[in-house]
Write a protein that binds this DNA or RNA. Structure first.
Length: 569
RNA sequence: GGCGGUGUAGCUCAGUUGGUUAGAGCAGCGGAAUCAUAAUCCGCGUGUCCGGGGUUCAAGUCCCUGCACCGCCA
């Protein structure tokens, strides 16, 4: 059985993610995971919350909670939303887990042993009032270049000049506003990525068929300017993985933690470990090529902003360890989803957030629209008008109405059981042939993770059913040849079953409704279309389902457009 | 400022290694049908492929350049 490991980029813990975050990682990853499971693959689908770092500490402070408590609560919120969107993770972990702590410390120890870690002294701003070192971007002050009063310590966003926190005039803490700051000397560990450049370069070159977006970003970072830079992997914070060399203490690094970007990707591995601990499975057969993972295909999903970390930093950690860890085989990256002419923005509360989306509509509406418009090759625009017309057309009119017209016609003419009589003619053979060709194309696109094309093909499969019905016209046939009408509608009911199976990766709830109404459990992916269209035999009972997709009215659309136009309320 | 991306029908987007009359869905117009959530099906697109140069027998597709928009700059 083919085995596929799938990871989605980790959502950060400090709040509820918006649709733009989800569409570039978790949602397409889920689509692929569901599809492969349906095709009989053994799948391990992993996601987790990314919990460490200063933004989490600040969010917790704002919420008036200890950071560990805040993260635990937010993890539950994100877990519930993931469930709401039917994201079928095998495990949704936490980067603050003991498993991740152990593995992060392990990797750091291995990297040190390999001579890839170096201690360097640096001068950083310390806030007495906050009792902590301040990351560069959390120091604010007046820009020495343009006089802008709210310049950040890493850069002035007014004149875009790159800054050092010590350049700022009248610096203050962005956390507390305190001006009681001083510069202190502190020591940090650096990962000597520059020494791994050739190895990483060769590794990237060895990858076949990766999207241009992915490799071009990686190559740029490897070769531009001074090339790949060494990277600080520790911070002076309380919240994080304590710096240790494996199980042993790290002299001189007491009280420091690893940088969030060092431990976050390791959580992919650790989350699988969490899964094993919770379910009694073996996680190493997914991750260690010396322990059974050599036949695993590993696919990652992420937004384009995450690509450098997954093509360079994380591989540097893994390759540098000198141990036989599984590296990514295919990296699917996405562009951005824009919202009504601008960006989705977490900080400004602009756009639709996961909780709000589920408040107004069932998850299938969102899954279908977002996946069929996923920003694969360029940024994509979300507008309420497009969302309304697309969803009404595709889900309500094409798919939902198909189920409705078939089941209701049958109920009124033959009763609520698959009718007997009649035999296939040319029209039915032609339909089977068309569907077989479309199914092959659908599978080809899904295998290649070409999501928009897959969605278009699935839609064409739905349309083929309506075309057939229009041509066969059982309502007319019924008057002259009831047996033939019975055969036609028997085929229609079987199409409903087939559509449920094929549509499940995109719209799992609707698929479940369709199967339930056809009184079918656990239908297999079709290998032969003609055969699949005879799966429901004459006499098999069914029910007419409730309207599967209510249409979005102009009033509701206008209401939502207004509600989500400004800041999150 | 540097780097990267994008610019194709009213809208959202496809257009493999350059190759016949540039495509899809939606919207729009016309028609058929009436089983169905007034839902379906059929037919209809001469669009300076952002502008300007260039390479080539041949460019939306490669090169140079200009413009516009977007993003990133650890």
């Amino acid at each position: 059985m083919p085995r596929t490991l799938i990871t989605s980029a980790l959502p950060y813990i400090n709040g509820i993610k918006h649709l733009g975050n989800m569409v570039g990682s978790q949602l397409p990853a889920d689509l692929y995971a569901r599809y492969l499971r349906a095709r009989g693959h053994e799948v391990m689908f992993i996601c987790a919350t990314d919990e460490h770092g200063t933004p989490a500490e600040i969010a917790a402070k704002k919420a008036g909670q200890p950071v560990a408590e805040y993260c635990a609560a937010m993890w539950q919120v994100q877990k519930d939303l993931a469930d709401g969107f039917r994201l079928s993770f095998d495990h949704f972990g936490r980067s603050s887990s003991p498993q991740n702590r152990r593995l992060t410390q392990h990797f750091a120890g291995r990297l040190d042993t390999a001579g890839l870690v170096e201690e360097r002294a640096s001068r950083q701003v310390y806030s007495n009032a906050d009792g902590r070192f301040l990351p560069d971007r959390y120091v604010e002050g007046t820009c020495p270049n343009c006089g802008y009063e709210r310049a950040r310590g890493d850069q002035c966003e007014n004149c875009t000049k790159q800054l050092d926190p010590t350049d700022l005039i009248a610096p203050r803490s962005a956390i507390s506003g305190s001006t009681d700051l001083e510069v202190r000397e502190t020591k940090h560990l650096f990962l000597l990525q520059s020494r791994l450049r050739d190895e990483l370069d060769a590794w990237i070159d060895a990858q076949r068929g990766w999207p241009v977006l992915t490799t071009s970003i990686a190559k740029k970072w490897l070769h531009d300017g001074d090339g790949l830079q060494d990277r600080g992997i520790t911070r002076d914070l309380d919240w994080g993985v304590p710096v240790q060399k494996g199980d042993a203490p790290w002299p001189g690094m007491e009280g420091k933690v690893f940088y969030v970007w060092f431990d976050a990707p390791i959580e992919y591995i650790a989350a699988t470990n969490e899964w094993a601990d919770a379910n009694g499975g073996d996680w190493e057969r997914w991750w260690r090529t010396d322990r059974g993972a050599d036949d695993v295909r590993y696919v990652q999903f992420m937004g384009k902003d995450n690509v450098p970390f997954h093509t360079l930093s994380f591989p540097a950690t893994i390759l540098g360890s000198g141990e036989p860890w599984k590296t990514v085989d295919y990296l699917k990256s996405f562009n951005y989803l824009n919202y009504d002419g601008g960006q989705f923005s977490t900080s400004q509360g602009r756009g639709v957030f996961m909780d709000q989306a589920l408040e107004v509509l069932p998850s299938d509406y969102w899954r279908w629209w977002l996946l069929s418009h996923v920003p694969e090759s360029s940024d994509t625009e979300f507008t309420w008008e497009a969302f309304q017309t697309d969803v009404n057309k595709d889900l309500a009119d094409v798919l939902g109405n198909f189920v409705s017209r078939v089941t209701k016609f049958c109920r009124s003419k033959f009763g609520e059981a698959v009718p007997a009589g009649g035999e296939w003619g040319l029209g039915e053979e032609a339909l089977a042939k068309t569907l077989a060709a479309r199914l092959a194309a659908y599978e080809r696109h899904m295998d290649a993770i070409e999501i928009r094309k897959s969605a278009a093909e699935l839609r064409a499969i739905w349309v083929a059913g309506n075309e057939y019905l229009q041509e066969a016209a059982p309502w007319a046939t019924f008057k002259t040849d009831p047996d033939k009408a019975a055969m036609q509608i028997r085929l229609g009911l079987n199409l409903v079953r087939l559509y449920a199976v094929l549509s499940a990766p995109f719209v799992p709830d609707a698929a479940a409704t369709m199967l339930r109404s056809m009184r079918v459990e656990g239908a297999d992916w079709p290998t032969d279309v003609a055969e699949a269209l005879g799966a429901l035999p004459a006499g098999h009972g069914f029910e007419v389902p409730e309207v599967m997709f209510a249409k979005i009215t102009d009033e509701r659309r206008a209401d939502w457009a207004a509600r989500f136009a400004g800041a999150r309320g």
